[in-house]
């Protein structure tokens, strides 16, 4: 099936098996292995990418459903010699150990900070009429779709909190 995807600003014309997930299109067909396959069932968040600015599990959607969409993967967020502030904070705070969930965490957190800036409430929001603030509870709640078995959670929260504080 012919599918056109704009990934990290570059247009790709692909001819894919219609069963190909967006994640497998990235990993198997475009060599973009930064997005990870942890469960292939939308249960772990390791494959999180942004589609038209919103975070989604790329394993739970077929590539052919995204004809014309703008996709941002971890490769579009920063490179080893040009890290985003969040990527740098993950390093400084030791927000990872094995590193396998990390690209998903960072994609997720990047989009999550936008969601907070736009005022979206969460389960942890005290008053949904107020703008949500970046408390530990808010961050932990909003990042709970991204599992980390090494359990860098406290450091992930710290990395996100510090990044947001510094950019504010």
């Amino acid at each position: 099936m012919k599918t056109e995807l704009t990934i990290n600003g570059t247009q790709h014309k692909l001819e894919l098996d219609p069963r190909t997930t967006l994640l497998d299109a990235l990993r198997h067909h475009l060599g973009l292995t930064g997005s990870k396959k942890g469960c292939d069932h939308g249960q772990c968040g390791a494959c999180t990418v942004m589609v038209n600015g919103r975070r989604i599990n790329s394993c739970l959607t077929l590539a052919c459903m995204h004809d014309g969409d703008e996709i941002t993967t971890i490769e579009g967020i920063g490179q080893p010699d040009n890290l985003s502030p969040l990527q740098q904070a993950f390093i400084s705070q030791d927000g990872f150990q094995c590193g396998y969930c990390t690209p998903g965490q960072i994609c997720s957190a990047t989009a999550m900070l936008e969601e907070i800036a736009e005022g979206w409430p969460s389960h942890a929001t005290e008053d949904i009429n107020d703008r949500p603030s970046l408390t530990v509870d808010e961050i932990a709640e909003r990042m709970s779709g991204n599992l980390c078995r090494c359990a860098a959670y406290p450091n992930i929260v710290e990395a996100i909190r510090k990044t947001a504080e510094e950019s504010a």
């Binding site: 490769e75 990872f96 590193g99």
Partner: peptide, 12 residues
């Protein structure tokens, strides 16, 4: 910091 950190946080 972990020296391999830049590779891990960028998916490389």
């Amino acid at each position: 910091d972990r020296p391999e950190g830049p590779l891990k946080v960028t998916g490389q």
